[in-house]
């Protein structure tokens, strides 16, 4: 598994995880509720993202490459100008629906800004800290505990799967395309057995060290108020931009 975290020294990296999660979430909400016609607002948001990326020392190329995760939805957006109704404009000999163009823009802009904000969060916050952050934002502990175990064991399981695949290949079994479905599924079944049995062994190991149903609580101290103020700059600036754009329009 290849996490997105970029270990760097930066002011953004140093912020506590909970303030970053909150800031990105609020920023995303502002973006999503912005009317699609407020083009200046979206330009402003992009500027904010660029600013944070610069502060966090996250390269633009890195961000753009990973933002392609959202590509399927951009493809969905592409059809809208052709299928849309109402007023139409001609562009390079194509008749495009104005409403459809706005619809496509809406999906493209909000989707991309959302992905970029999430990427910045993941790039500047380790998995461990993200869970701690959720914990401090009062996410139910069952969920954060399940996440903790999950993230601990994903790589172990992927190694297991890789070893089983190599064993299969080294016995000369290498079907392609649909024929491999059976071998693949047998591998998945074996992986489930290993995961489940490992879960049971982990539980025994926990009991052996005095586990009685309560995990030790997250370590470290909560974010100081100053960090909340600093990180709120992102959503507050975004909201300011949104209001300004609405007033200007």
């Amino acid at each position: 598994m290849e996490p997105l975290y970029l270990a760097r020294e930066s002011r953004v990296h140093r912020l506590s995880p909970e303030v970053k999660i909150a800031a990105v979430l609020l920023f995303t909400i502002v973006v999503v509720v912005t009317p699609r016609e407020d083009l200046t607002a979206f330009a402003g948001y992009t500027l904010l993202i660029a600013l944070v990326a610069g502060l966090a020392r996250v390269p633009a190329g890195w961000l753009l490459k990973r933002a392609t995760i959202e590509l399927p939805f951009v493809l969905l957006a592409v059809v809208l100008p052709f299928t849309g109704h109402g007023e139409r404009v001609d562009w390079l000999g194509l008749s495009l629906s104005v409403d459809g163009l706005y619809g496509a823009w809406n999906i493209f802009a909000k989707g991309t800004l959302g992905v970029l904000a999430s990427l910045l969060l993941a790039a500047t916050t380790s998995m461990r800290d993200l869970i701690l952050g959720l914990d401090r934002l009062r996410c139910p502990t069952v969920i954060t505990q399940i996440m903790t175990f999950m993230l601990r064991y994903i790589d172990v399981l992927i190694d297991d799967a890789r070893r089983m695949r190599i064993a299969r290949l080294s016995r000369g079994y290498d079907p392609r395309f649909l024929w491999q479905v059976k071998a693949f599924a047998v591998g998945v079944g074996a992986l489930f057995l290993r995961s489940y049995e490992r879960g049971e062994r982990v539980y025994l190991a926990m009991l052996s060290r005095g586990y009685s149903g309560r995990m030790p609580s997250g370590s470290g101290s909560k974010a100081p108020a100053a960090e909340w103020v600093v990180s709120s700059a992102l959503p507050v600036a975004a909201a300011g931009i949104a209001v300004a754009a609405a007033v200007l329009a």
């Binding site: 998995m127 461990r128 869970i131 903790t148 175990f149 993230l151 601990r152 064991y153 172990v156 490992r198 062994r201 982990v202 025994l204 190991a205 926990m206 052996s208």
Partner: peptide, 13 residues
């Protein structure tokens, strides 16, 4: 008790 597979025993981050 130290179990056979250390990955079972080291379950914390």
């Amino acid at each position: 008790v130290v179990f056979q597979d250390p990955d079972d025993q080291l379950f914390m981050p």
